[in-house]
Design a protein around this nucleic acid. Structure first.
Lengths: 198, 198, 198, 198
DNA sequence: AAGTAATCGAGACGGTACGTCATGTCTTAGC
DNA sequence: GCTAAGACATGACGTACCGTCTCGATTACTT
């Protein structure tokens, strides 16, 4: 039966095992959500993923990079680019707030932001692979909205991004909830919405 | 010579050794600043402080509580209450920004905020001993300034506190600098300064 | 009851735990006999002894030194000094042959002699702690027997010791048995027994 | 140019590669002499021989068998059969002593004899491929010399072989030197040389 | 003044996880 | 069908800290 699924252990060979890669990412994600970063050890990930420790060390330099991989993949799915309108910016921030507080992948971001305080290498990776690109996208979004005459913020764009993102992240970090009302209030106060949209 | 200082090891006895307590706090602080939270172990603190491990375990339930002790003591010295004027609020935030980015004790706060993401017990302690009291003092300060007619914010006080604190903390967390200009811009945009000021 | 055995866990403190020391020695001995040197790992010894790995590393630099400890202690019990007579030398060698082939501690000696081929450090330790002293005792025994006129070997003492020990060890190493008859034949041929004997 | 030596990697095909076989044997031999048995790993042999690990596993069941191959090939070259005279036996033993102490292949024999203590499979292979045949040749040599009236040993041939071989091997195992004088003394004392010699 | 109690430095203990290495099995792909 | 290359599960290595414990010395409060 040439086309049948090979019985038992059937992958492996000379090339990277995609199944193992995914098993590691999912195991890391699950363990983080279930037991927190503190007990998230390489050994536990390996056990949970049914993968050898060495397979993890072969492909990832640290558990932080595993989490970054999951963050980058998950955030790409869950955080689509916003439209350059006042509503678009508001929805973009609402989605980010929900991501941080309700999505497992948001827990990953908070954990990495935390770990970055303890470890410069984590800080560098996090900036390069997530924070930097995201900030650039936010800046672009705002610039486009300004160009379109949708918003007229009084603050410098570089400050504005942090004035919007900072409170949301800070609330998430301190365990407070981040409601749509809160996001809307920030948007209303900082964006200088023009025209018909209140 | 019966009254002479005994050579070598000389105190100890029935009461808590204040010198040991201070040695532990300073050792923890120093090690955090020098090598980061990652390598901050109880054993390293004990070594650096010249104290037995058990002496630490007798008085502190975890290294987090050691850091909280240093944070509470240091922040009381470095973060005096602000005056309920527009300038007072501005200075208060400027001092907080400087504390976070330039003061060793600020590094402790960032480390604890980070650790709180990994460990609920840290989160609880940090709220109870630092974040809660500080937020209350911020709310009081703002309320007094509003009562005095110094400021007229459009945002709800509870949101306002995070709108001011959040960006500062977020910048510190991401390693960006927090200039007086940035603080001033936030203050100007969010506080609705009245009267002679601006 | 002041003389009673302390209840529960009663050892430890800042002094070495004799129970742990013995547990390690016995575990090593047992595992060697049961499964051989190849599977004798520090981890297995720790598991079997119910002891932490670090406790082993604290006191022994390698598994070889553990075995040497058991060898030295056991051989002292099982290999009493012989009397400086022709019969004494014969009994001494018979006991050694039995030790090598039938006694678990003899297995330890063969394993160490083997390991010494693979590792110079083992060779050095084995000489210092066992082979050297034993050779000296053999030389003394022979010298006394010669002085007493009990034996009159034609070979130089230094050669004689190896001429007697070598065949016994070699037979043990190659898995052959070492009978009393074989020992007696060697003794008869090499010792030049004098006087009333034979 | 079809007949030219292909550049770079060039042989292979569907027959066993003799060059690879020799490379493995030499690599094993070299590594044993250079770094000892302890660091002699399959991976190291493969690296040194410039051969894939699997190529080794395909042809040899263990590193012991690799060494046995080198031992059998080398000892055939370096240990010619002795002549059935008193001098022949003496020269035979002198050559064996030199083989053990000075020849790399002798180191291989000692290593295998050692490994045989740790592993019954090694013991079996070593007996079958080296020790057994060699013992038989020794017995034959002695029997012929006795028949020829060259020697008249008092010991049983089976004991005699070990009485001659044992001390030499034992000295080699314990790192002592094995001089011609020592061999000659043993021969003189055990062989009962007759006739014109001595 | 003797006894009691809590402190301290020291460090051994049973554990868990670390990151590295070698094992022997397997697959891919070139010749 | 052989080869080199190398991914994989397994498991031991020796190290670092964990948090608990026992020790012996020291010093203060009790009677």
């Amino acid at each position: 039966m040439p086309a049948a699924t090979p019985p038992g252990r059937a992958r492996s060979g000379n090339r990277r095992d995609e199944a193992a890669r995914l098993a590691v990412l999912h195991a890391a994600d699950d363990l983080l959500v279930e037991h927190g970063f503190g007990t998230l050890t390489i050994e536990a990930i390996a056990r949970r993923a049914g993968v050898a420790k060495q397979t993890i060390y072969r492909w990832w330099p640290s558990k932080v990079e595993i989490l970054l991989d999951t963050l980058v993949e998950d955030s790409a799915k869950r955080l689509p680019a916003g439209k350059p309108t006042a509503d678009g910016v508001r929805d973009h921030l609402r989605a980010f707030a929900r991501f941080l507080t309700a999505d497992p992948a948001g827990r990953v971001l908070l954990a990495l932001l935390a770990q970055a305080q303890h470890d410069p290498a984590t800080a560098a990776s996090l900036h390069e692979r997530f924070l930097g690109p995201r900030r650039q996208r936010d800046l672009d979004l705002i610039a486009h909205a300004v160009d379109a005459g949708e918003i007229a913020p009084r603050l410098d764009p570089d400050v504005l991004v942090d004035a919007l993102t900072g409170p949301i992240v800070y609330r998430a970090l301190t365990g407070a909830d981040v409601t749509d009302d809160l996001v809307d209030a920030l948007v209303a106060d900082l964006l200088g919405v023009t025209g018909r949209r209140r």
